[in-house]
Amino acid sequence: MKSSGSKPILQAENLTKHYDGVQVVKGISFDVKKGEIFGILGPNGAGKTTTLEMLETMREIDGGKAIIAGIDVAKNQDKVKAIIGVQPQTPNFEEKTKLVELISFLASCYGEKVDAIELLKKVNLEEKANSYPENLSGGQRQRFSIATALVHGPKVFFLDEPTTGLDPQARRNLWDLVKEVRDSGITVVMTTHYMDEAEILCDRVAIMDEGKIIALDTPKKLIKNLLAKGFKKEQHVEQADLEDVFIDLTGKALRE
């Protein structure tokens, strides 16, 4: 992570969005630092996906301002699209199309030619190069979707609930992949409603509820603040939980 003094790569100022007169995002502001994994947490319906989609140019910004790498999102949609990568909640691709073909088409959408096999290697799918997306497992599909989002070398990468519905092995594998993406210098903004995921993965998190950000800090700091208020868990925390048992018994290796 760069020092907190450097200029943020993404600035959201007072963003609002309403559907049919109901305000679902109520004037939220936050900065994302270059090279961090920024998490947007919250229960279903909190406005996480809507916020993400406004930043991705996929939804119109009703009020407020968003700036990514110095570019105004609302005014320069194409310039923003060229420097961001997008991972939708449920990635779907055209059927009967080889993974290498999908990658070269998505790269061509940005006017780029890429080495598709090289990209597939990065997400550990090179042996699936000639498979069709409908024959991939859930985890493989998420990994493939990440590869397609990185075809044009974006500066910021948005992921919407990337591990929903995945088994523990696939989740861990995806976490490693997201960390690798961050370590390669790409800023990551992701939504999730899994707290363990946010705690392990995110450098900083914003917690949203009912269209507002109600807390924003590093996971450690947020926990510290809660404990400082005198919070105590009712039960003594075990040194392991059922997921640890599951991973211990079944191993970390991917099953697909």
């Binding site: 991705e56 140019t57 996929m58 194409d78 699209k81 060229a82 997008v86 939708p88 449920t90 990635p91 779907n92 691709f93 055209e94 998505l106 959408c109 940005y110 006017g111 397609t148 044009h152």
Partner: peptide
């Protein structure tokens, strides 16, 4: 069918133009 599966939406996120 492609719209319902979100496939075309994925293209919208890129710089692909409608005329292309």
């Amino acid at each position: 069918r492609l719209k319902q599966r979100g496939v075309l939406r994925r293209y919208k996120a890129t710089t692909l133009k409608i005329w292309q």
